[in-house]
Design a protein around this nucleic acid. Structure first.
Length: 983
DNA sequence: GTGGTCTCCTA
DNA sequence: GTAGGAGACCACA
């Protein structure tokens, strides 16, 4: 190396972690291998190497190396055993990427350096010193503050993510001291991440000020008695020794015995074919193309290179130390096993995390109430260091669209959690409702302003339990939040199914008890319940802190336990493609809401009330007495007791059944009273559930109805909608449909409804691979008529409606895990006849029976079934000795892959549709609702014609490229002023 | 006031 | 026969 040469040193280990959190998660298409950080790394390296050949750019590297940490143990551990002892394990889907990034480096033909016993930073320090001595310059590709001590006249740093150079001036600007004092500064402040102790109570600001005053650490320690502030003085005197140890920990070693000298680092021209082979193996098509163009290689002629995927996390520092207690780990790469890193398989990591979580008890007394901005800033800085922020909002309402923020809690590491009260009030609320703001709370907007950049920071992962709620609320307050991880959704992906999928199955309390062995404070205990319940702003701040900080702490701990299971169980792709990207998509739908015309509902309510009143009079006349028609008990007594109608059946609890089915049968025999009761029920149902209830959900500010979608409450992967449920708005009767006319588009806009035609039958045709069904769907013919024609040997032409109706019932029955009992019930035919139909059906479509048998066998064998995208639904009770329980679980297990695959397909469509619309210049077309196989959009009138083909295209191809369906998907779409006409 | 039961709305 | 949510009633506390 000579004067004028320029050495680039990439801090590989540092980059991995930052890229992982900063970049959107990416998985290899073919097998779900997580490769997001690898992709970021390759793009960065390529850009750096390319710039090297472009002489227009100011800085041209002549020497180049990528440097990694070797292993857990370094000389610093000998000096201070606790060094980096409390680091948490890396995210599970990052682990395989450590090895891949080293392979990427070699594919670039760049030196990939690491030395046992030293950190990457020490090697960087050593090479930088050598380069300086040889008269060359050095650029360190990193933004790590630990490296800033090296910055000087010939050494600068470069942050590849922010495209920002860090020189002496930038260091001073950021830390208040020049680079040569960074060591002393860090010795004082310590580093919670690396477990460098420092002096308690001294942060960067104070440290800089002290160094300014005293010059350096030794002088400061010698003259500590001169410090005026009592606390500060005592702390420094007491912890002087810690400061000295800290200084030795943070001081980088610049005389590491190197294997490769500077001359080994001379930058070579890129080896196109070798690099392309690796990029192809990673399935990075864009970069492959770029490299091919730049190097003149023929990408098509190059085969993907073999790539080793290791799950042992080679040399990413001491992060896997917690694995000590876990199972024996497989050896590391050849030749490095003996002294190499703690090796750990995904399964071992899962075990280790679960054991650690169960062992680390929760200590509520350690939680902090943050009452001033500086403390909040310090916590948020910690989050930027860890790259992790567990967050939970406390509000006055369960509806995020109308809730007021009362405070929020954060956690950056297990046990380190705090609550930030913002608008707690004292109890002196008067007629105006107010009460006075309690003192000792950070001004609302100041706190949010501090929080905002961290929430938006792509390099800080925000973790929450049901984080969609917080996302919607915070977005409303002008605080967008990304990226996100949701412990509820992770649990849902891992353990979904009837055993845990029902309401509350993935709730925080349940998860905490199960995984942490800890029961969090119930909400009731802080806010009361029933009449005495108060909103959270009235809760005492100390009690609020215990409750709220615990939630953030628990969410973080759950995340540590649950996230690694995704990789171990092969469910990363399901989470990353079907859950995580949907959080903000659905959040936006909830935020938009849909306009509901109050006048229409009010008029309908009046109409329904009038008709129902008229029916009531007649019912009393026919019954000969007044009674509560809405009481099944009283009604049953009158109909089957006093009046003695025939055909009575009992419900499970021995009551007379008065279901519509029974009453219809009686009506069919010519009885007037049951008919009127059925009609009365329909009207009162429509009135109470819809026309009376819906106006109460119209938001005061937006004038729209904002339903809440639950992403984790079904066993199959469907969404559910509540408060109000907009997935059960009537459609089957003329009267009911009128309610749909109240769902309207804004003036100048239209509602677009796009729904999948027969999606579940198409999925069935695909998974069971039934030739006749596939053909029928390919030809676009009436599927129920085709079924009838096959079964009963009747031509489709001129088929009696009754024949088709029966075939249709059978088709649905198949999807539901058919039983003769159920089909008989549905069609009102004898059980024997229904059984004969089913036998006939299986005769004509033997593939269906094979599929059903295979599904049941899988469920019994593994305890779960899978959708075509790999989502699992667990049915452990399929092994029950109770025949009823077993049969029920068998039917559910047969239905789940069909219903669930359809649900996954529409989820995929929802994830893609916003971008597709935006790409077509239609970003003013907004998705509002999802009703299982239907999506509702609102669009300016002028956009409708252009939007419909885009929507249809996305929906019909939503399964691709993960699954190539054997049958086409078909979508019907229409636009109108209201939902009734659009559907 | 809470929880269970019945009924009924949807895909 | 599958998957949901909600309102009314009623017996329990």
């Amino acid at each position: 190396m000579k004067k004028g040469d320029h050495l680039f040193l990439v801090d590989g280990s540092g980059y991995i972690f930052r890229a992982y959190h900063a970049l959107p998660p990416l998985t290899r298409k073919s097998d779900g291998l997580p490769v997001g950080a690898v992709a970021g790394f390759c793009n960065m390296l390529w850009k750096l190497v390319q710039d090297a050949r472009n002489t227009d750019v100011g800085v041209v590297p002549t020497h180049f190396a990528v440097i990694f940490d070797y292993s857990a143990k370094t000389f610093r551990n000998t000096m201070y055993p606790e060094y980096k002892a409390n680091r948490s394990a890396p995210p599970d889907d990052l682990i395989p990427q450590f090895g891949l990034i080293r392979q990427a480096t070699r594919a670039f033909d760049l030196p990939c350096l690491e030395i046992e016993g030293y950190e990457a930073d020490d090697l960087i320090a050593t090479y930088a010193r050598l380069a300086c001595e040889a008269g060359g310059d050095t650029t360190i590709i990193s933004s790590d503050k630990d490296l800033m001590q090296l910055v000087g006249p010939t050494v600068s740093m470069y942050d590849p993510m922010k495209d920002r150079e860090i020189k002496v001036a930038e260091v001073i600007e950021k830390w208040g001291v020049p680079p040569e004092k960074m060591i002393d500064l860090q010795a004082l402040t310590g580093d919670s991440i690396d477990n460098v102790p420092g002096v308690p109570g001294i942060g960067p600001k104070t440290a800089a000020q002290l160094l300014e005053q005293f010059g350096d650490l030794d002088t400061l320690l010698a003259r500590a008695s001169e410090i005026k502030q009592n606390k500060r003085r005592e702390s420094i005197i007491e912890h002087a020794e810690k400061a000295r140890i800290s200084r030795e920990l943070v001081r980088l070693k610049d005389d590491v015995p190197l294997v490769e000298g500077l001359d080994d680092l001379v930058l070579q021209p890129p080896n196109g074919p070798k690099l392309i082979g690796f990029l192809k193996a990673m399935e990075f098509s864009t970069l492959t193309r770029r490299v091919a163009e730049a190097t003149g290689a023929d990408a098509a002629a190059i085969e993907a290179a073999p790539v080793d995927v290791e799950f042992d996390g080679k040399a990413h520092g001491p992060d896997l130390d917690e694995g000590d207690a876990a199972q024996p780990a497989p050896a590391g790469p050849a030749g490095e096993a003996a002294s190499g890193p703690q090796a750990m398989t995904p399964a071992a990591l899962v075990t280790a995390r679960a054991e650690a979580a169960a062992a680390n008890r929760i200590d509520r007394t350690a939680y902090v109430t943050i009452r001033d901005l500086a403390t909040l800033e310090a916590w948020l800085a910690d989050a930027r260091e860890t790259g992790i922020l567990s967050i939970d909002t406390e509000t006055t309402s369960l509806f995020p669209m109308e809730a007021e923020l009362v405070g929020f809690s954060i956690a950056t590491r297990p046990g380190k959690a705090a609550y930030v009260p913002l608008s707690h009030r004292n109890g002196k609320g008067d007629l105006l409702g107010g009460g006075e703001l309690i003192e000792g709370q950070i001004p609302f907007h100041d706190a949010l302003a501090a929080l905002k950049p961290v929430l938006a920071d792509r390099s800080v992962l925000k973790i929450g339990q049901n984080i969609k709620y917080d996302w919607v609320l915070l977005y409303r307050l002008g605080l967008p939040m990304a990226p996100l991880d949701d412990t509820m959704l992770i649990s849902y992906v891992l353990d979904g199914g009837s055993s845990s999928g029902n309401t509350g199955g993935h709730g925080m309390d349940k998860l905490s008890e199960r995984w942490l062995g800890h029961i969090p404070i119930p909400y009731k205990d802080v806010a009361g319940s029933g009449k005495s319940q108060v909103t959270f702003d009235m809760v005492d701040i100390d009690r609020a802190t215990a409750y709220a900080a615990e939630d953030a702490d628990v969410a973080l701990r759950l995340w540590q336990v649950l996230k690694p299971r995704l990789v171990a169980d092969g469910l990363t792709a399901v989470y990353e493609r079907l859950e995580r990207p949907l959080i903000d998509v659905i959040g936006r739908m909830e935020r938009r809401g849909i306009a509901v015309d109050r006048q229409i509902l009010s008029r309908l309510s009046g109409d329904f009330a009038q008709s129902a009143a008229a029916l009531e009079d007649e019912i009393y006349r026919l019954a000969g007495e007044r009674f509560n028609i809405g009481s099944p008990k009283q009604l049953g007594d009158i109909l089957f007791g006093r009046m003695g109608f025939a055909g009575a059946t009992k419900t499970a609890t021995g009551q007379w059944s008065t279901s519509a089915r029974i009453l219809e049968d009686l009506a069919a025999e010519g009885h007037e009273l049951p008919r009127k009761i059925v009609d009365w029920r329909q009207l009162t149902k429509l009135k109470s559930t819809y026309t009376d209830a819906l106006p109460g959900y119209i938001n005061r500010d937006t004038k729209r109805v904002h339903t809440c979608y639950s992403m984790a409450s079904t066993s199959t992967g469907r969404l559910s909608s509540s408060e109000p449920n907009l997935q059960n708005i009537p459609i089957r009767t003329v009267e009911g449909r009128k309610i749909r006319t109240a769902f309207v588009a804004e003036p100048g806009h239209k509602l677009i409804s796009a729904d999948y035609s027969q999606i579940e039958l198409r999925v069935l045709a695909h998974v069971a691979d039934i030739p006749q069904l596939r053909q029928a769907f390919a030809d676009g013919i009436d599927i129920h008529a085709m079924t009838a024609s096959e079964m009963f040997s009747v031509p489709v032409e001129g088929m009696p409606p009754e024949v088709r109706r029966r075939a249709k019932a059978i088709n649905f029955g198949i999807i539901y895990g058919i039983s003769a009992f159920g089909l008989a019930n549905q069609l009102s035919i004898p059980r024997e006849e229904a059984g004969a139909y089913i036998r006939k059906y299986f005769q004509r479509f033997p593939g269906i029976r094979d599929y059903m048998d295979a599904t049941k066998a899988t469920a019994r064998d593994k305890g779960f079934v899978e959708t075509i995208f790999g989502r699992r639904a667990h049915y452990p009770e399929i092994r029950s000795s109770n025949p009823q329980v077993r049969a029920f679980n068998e039917r559910a297990a047969i239905n789940a892959p069909i219903q669930g695959s359809a649900a996954d397909i529409i989820r995929r469509a929802m994830v893609r549709i916003e971008d597709a619309l935006a790409d077509a210049g239609l970003d003013d077309v907004e998705m509002l609702l999802q009703v299982h196989d239907e999506l509702i959009f609102e669009a300016p009138e002028s956009r409708v014609e252009k939007a419909i083909p885009v929507i249809r295209q996305v929906m019909e191809h939503a399964a691709m490229p993960a699954v190539s369906m054997r049958v086409p998907l078909h979508v019907d779409a229409r636009a109108a002023d209201n939902w009734d006409e659009a559907h």
